[in-house]
Design a protein around this nucleic acid. Structure first.
Lengths: 125, 125
DNA sequence: AATCTACATTCCGATTGCGGAATATAAACA
DNA sequence: TGTTTATATTCCGCAATCGGAATGTAGATT
């Protein structure tokens, strides 16, 4: 991943917000969607953008797709540096902090529907 | 200057190379052009892009326009952090190092033509 | 006054990016 | 098997970006 490609991943507001959340750890799409309060297509498309460029990984867990940043050991020096820089910058800005706050309010367990049934919601919907 | 706007300035190869050179100090267009070995329009347009977004300043010195990064005291924390990050990353990559090497080979004095006349060139042309 | 020099701007055409509405898909569940 | 759930993909229109060729321009030089 070339340096300029890293910056291309970072040059959209929605993607910045997504990455800021993923810096906290792996997250399924519905949590990202809920935390950003943005429509599903938008989230999904930007995740696709990041994925095709190698900025995020996906794994399947039952009904959910869990996105994560590449494991630390596999990150290039430039990626590590820029992610750290992003995290520092975002930590001081209201919008990013609000996203994190919303994220923490969510029930982070993506449980099978059968488990959640009766509580009126599955996962974070 | 919002964080995402910083990244928008950084998301093009030519602009990265320009900024990497400007991190060394103020430079006139002809030096940037010679160091990058790219056509004049290309250089000029990307400098325009950076200027309208407040990423660089211009001053006139006789026949030349001298571009520079905003003075350190006026840089936001995010800008400072990201420029440092860029400089670190670029310092380890062949392409950027080549630009710097070419820059250092240039006669960095933009002197009036009259002074240079007889040596067969004005400024870096 | 005419010319030159260093640079910017305009005018293309092609590509890419973005957002939303609608639709598709694949796994889980009943 | 049919339905629901979570997510991706396609289709569409629009705006932004990029590169190059040609042209414009302001100040310096002759």
């Amino acid at each position: 991943m070339k340096l300029v490609q890293i910056y291309q991943c970072l040059c959209d507001e929605t993607r910045l917000r997504l990455l800021n959340l993923l810096l906290e750890g792996p997250l399924c799409v519905c949590h990202l969607q809920a935390a950003l309060a943005e429509p599903q297509v938008k989230i999904s498309k930007h995740l696709g953008y990041l994925k095709t460029r190698g900025m995020v990984r996906v794994s399947r867990q039952g009904n959910w797709r869990v996105y994560s940043l590449p494991p630390e050991k596999e990150r290039s020096a430039e990626l590590t540096a820029n992610l750290a820089c992003l995290q520092d910058c975002a930590a001081e800005q209201a919008g990013f902090k609000r996203d994190l706050a919303r994220l923490r309010k969510l029930d982070l367990v993506c449980a099978p529907v059968s488990v959640v049934r009766g509580k009126g919601k599955a996962c974070c919907n």
